[in-house]
Amino acid sequence: MISLTDQAFDPGTLLSNFCRGRTETGAVASFVGLARAEGGAAAVLELDAYPGFTEAQIAQHVATAQSRFELQDVRIVHRIGAIGPGEPIVFVATAASHRRAAFEACDFLMDYLKSRAPFWKKETGPDGARWIEPRPQDLTDLARWETR
């Protein structure tokens, strides 16, 4: 399931709910991305999305993950709107029979979300506002999956 929300979320509750009732799963991996303060340079992060399109694009990538790894289930929650330092921005959880698939699929999905999913991120601080584009490292991370 994929959700966009403009409300703060509790990653612990999401993870507990995702784990509940799984008798054949064996492995759940999760990732939580938090907004960094950047030493005071980023007082507010604003996340823009294209409702409908953003979820559909992520769903396509989840389908790719499901065909590539032996996944049983995926949960993605992504914040939109204004986010303060320290608040969770993104939650990804993957469920599989064995840990390798769960770890790798979680990593794969996050690399996609960082630099290919339809979100636009603006950081506002004392020196004004700037739109953030993927860092070279984000693109290197993503490229790892193209050669495997």
Binding site: H78, V90, L113, K114, P118, F119
Partner: peptide, 10 residues
């Protein structure tokens, strides 16, 4: 029609 600049999430 939507114009989509370079994307960045997470």
């Amino acid at each position: 029609v939507a114009f989509l600049p370079p994307m960045s999430g997470g």
